[in-house]
Amino acid sequence: MSKKVLVVDDDPDVRLFTVTVLEQHGYTPLEATNGEEGKQMIKEDRPDLVILDVLMPRESGVRLYRELKTDKKLRDLPVVILSGIAEKSFLRSQKALTEFGGDPVPEPEYYLEKPVEAEELARTIQKILG
């Protein structure tokens, strides 16, 4: 059975792009449109990888990433951040949240800044999932 990859992004075009790349490379794509929905699907569908946007309505990628990496059961689930936000800004917000009294979280496995070429996205996924 092919590996499941969850795409969490509020932009339908981004989802469509990523989903097509995944299909072309033989993965099973799953889609969520915000952090809340993403969290639920991670628990229910047990994906092998999460491709996560940062700026989303309802629950942002910053928060979902924190929740995943501080959850004993989920912290080993690999996450690729795919965002228009620069990696620096993402790390800065995580650091601020940690200083504010949260647990420290590791840096994401891979951080891709939009726009991303299909090949680079595919290469990254293959590196993680083989």
Binding site: V14, T18, T20, P115
Partner: peptide, 30 residues
């Protein structure tokens, strides 16, 4: 704006990727 523009560029790249695949696979839907 940089953020907005990055998203749009990403969308354009996605679109052209889909067009490429559509042509390659002769898939009119894609």
């Amino acid at each position: 704006l940089a953020h907005g523009i990055k998203n749009i560029l990403h969308g354009l790249k996605g679109g052209s990727y889909l067009v490429d695949i559509g042509i390659e696979n002769e898939d009119p839907d894609k």
